[in-house]
Every structure is written in C-alpha cells, then in structure tokens.
Design a binder for these strands. Structure first.
Lengths: 173, 173
DNA sequence: GTCGATGCAAACGTTTTGCACACTG
DNA sequence: CAGTGTGCAAAACGTTTGCATCGAC
C-alpha cells in the first residue's frame, strides 16, 4: 500500500501565502490566537512554532509530519524535523491540531477546527472526509453496550471507495 | 501509550497445545486446511508456516507480529522473525489471517474466522471486542452517502472505555 | 536569569529487503 | 530440478530522545 502516500504527495506544497488575501488574514489571526494560548499555558511563542503553524494553516488539510517538515525545511532551513514533531505534539496537547492514523502509512496531521472522520480507501488511497454526524448512532450504541466513548477524531476507517469497488474483489489488507 | 502493549503482554504465551483435546483437533484441522489452500495457490507447505499457523490457532486471539515471533522463536529457534512477517503477509493474501491497527502500537494479527471490531481504550489500552452488527447502520450510511464500503475487520477504533471515562478529561492522543 | 524550546545526532521499535542457501512439489 | 521459502544481516521507515545551546519571558 504505497498508494496513499503517492496521493498525499500529489497534493503537496503550497507557498505559505495563498492568492486570497482574506484567507491569509484568517490564517494570521489563527496563528496569533494559538501563540497567545501557548503563552497562557506557560509555553513560549517561538519563531519555529509560528512557522509550523503557518504552514499548517495554509497548506493542504492533512499531511504527515514528514511532509510538513519537508515543506517547512525548504522555506526555513533552520527549523529541524525533530522540532516539527515536538511542536505538533505540543499543539495537540493544546487541542489546536490533531493527528489520525489513516490506514498503514504515517499519521496525518490537521488543524482541529474541522473534526471530520477520515474514510481511507485501501486500494487507491483516496481519503474521503465524512461527517461526524454519520457516526452518532454507532457512538451511542457503543456507549450503551460497552460503555465505550468513541474518539471520532482519531477514528481511522478503512474500506473501499466507490471507484475501486468496481475492480476485483481482493482485499489487500 | 505503552499501556496496550502491557495488557497484551499480560495475556501472553500459551503452549501450542491446550488442555482441551477437542480444541486441539480443531486447530489441527485448520492448519491442514490452510496448508492445502497454500498448495492449491502454488505455495509450499513448509514447516515454518505450519508452526506459525499452529501458534496463531492456539494462542491468544490477537497478538503483534513480534509477540508471535517471540513465542514461536522460543519453541522453534530456527524460525526467524522475518519469516513470521512474510508468512503473515502471505496468509493474509489467502484470507486466512488479518491484521488491524489498534491505535498507536504495532498491528495486531488474528485468524480470520472471527470478524469482530476492536475498540481500544487509549488510556488503559484495554481491547473490547464489539459485535460487527453494531456497525451495520454506519456501514449502510457510508455506502449511501459516500459510496464507501467499510472494511469492518480492519476497523480500528479508539476511544475511552467505561473505567477510564471516570478519570481526567485529557485525551492523550 | 530562569526555564522552556531548539538543533543536532543518535537511538528507537517495527517492518521490509537483498542475498545466498535449503527445501517442497 | 524448478522455483518458492528461509535464515540472516542490514536497511528502511517514522518517530523519539539526550544533551548542550539558544532565546522568550
């Protein structure tokens, strides 16, 4: 299953500013907001963290830590990969970003505003963003029957997308 | 999250024969069956493969490849870890075993007869086996809305179990 | 000045691979 | 005897860690 990685790579880097000025401002606001939160929690608003946040706020919705590190490193060679990992972890503690495991590959990181569920096709690697509402029934059932509370954000779901369902019947996983 | 590993380790090795003779026979039958299937598909029924299958058929329901390799290696030092990985992969192609990703740790492998869903608690690492039926509604909804067919076997679900829900509110993932 | 964050390199745990040899059919 | 499977060692992969230094507050 290298397919997913290839798909993700295809989406790849965007500069850290888009053509759309308004979108830029939103990203800036968000960055400032998180920096404040960081300070409020006894952390430091460092340059590296600002850069990492900006990259996340303006790039594709989900990327692996490595892809992120690569992009950031290209623009800011001083920012080391280990810092990206550590910072993502820190941001996750703050509830600003999340990661999900989308099948076999490395974890995917995304900003936390948008708590959708990821459906990954194990044939072609497509990632479909599903609505969290679709899972409310199961969530309720699992809570009732097993006392188990779903973490919908971290919920990695594999299966077969519409396009690939037409192919052969072999399940590679 | 080392908790899960600890839990799994607690379940650990059983010998490759149980006290129950009948269960033994079932395992033997299953092994023979798979060996035939293997041959039918142009593969070879080697000793290593038999040993690996036996270990899977008689031990705990889900184990990591490493745990499996460890147990097998203890009884059959000739069987190398790489062979376990390769063989599991081969068996999966045959539809005999499956693996699932139960959260952050390594994949869990199990024989394929029992297609249950794994609920893993990200606090304590407990693994609850849920009924596949609980997911039929979501499965239908996802198929309708996104044309996506859930692979219920590979469905890795994280959340919080009843016991841990009483603790603090921090989500470690 | 204090303490948290960073760069760097090295280790980590899991899985995969290349190669020569061994065995199954 | 053809070709698959295996042992072994080494690499790959994604991630984490130890430590000295740097920089934010």
């Amino acid at each position: 299953m290298r397919a997913r990685a290839a798909v993700e790579r295809g989406v790849d880097p965007v500069g850290q500013s888009t053509a759309d000025g308004a979108e830029d401002r939103v990203a800036e606001d968000r960055v400032a907001e998180v920096m404040d939160l960081l300070r409020a929690r006894g952390g430091r608003a460092s340059g590296a963290r600002r850069v990492i946040l900006e990259a996340m706020a303006t790039g594709p919705a989900h990327r692996t830590a490595e892809e992120l590190a690569e992009q950031i490193h290209a623009e800011h060679p001083a920012v080391h990969q280990a810092t990206v990992y550590r910072t993502l972890e820190r941001f996750e503690e703050l509830g600003v970003v999340y990661h999900s495991h989308l099948g076999h590959g490395p974890a995917q990181w995304h900003l936390g505003e948008n708590h959708h569920v990821h459906l990954t096709c194990d044939r072609c690697g497509a990632v479909i963003d599903a609505d969290q509402a679709d899972f409310e029934e199961v969530a309720a059932a699992l809570r009732d029957r097993y006392g188990f509370s779903l973490d919908i954000r971290h919920f990695a779901i594999t299966g077969t997308c519409a396009g690939c369902a037409d192919g052969d019947g072999r399940d590679p996983w």
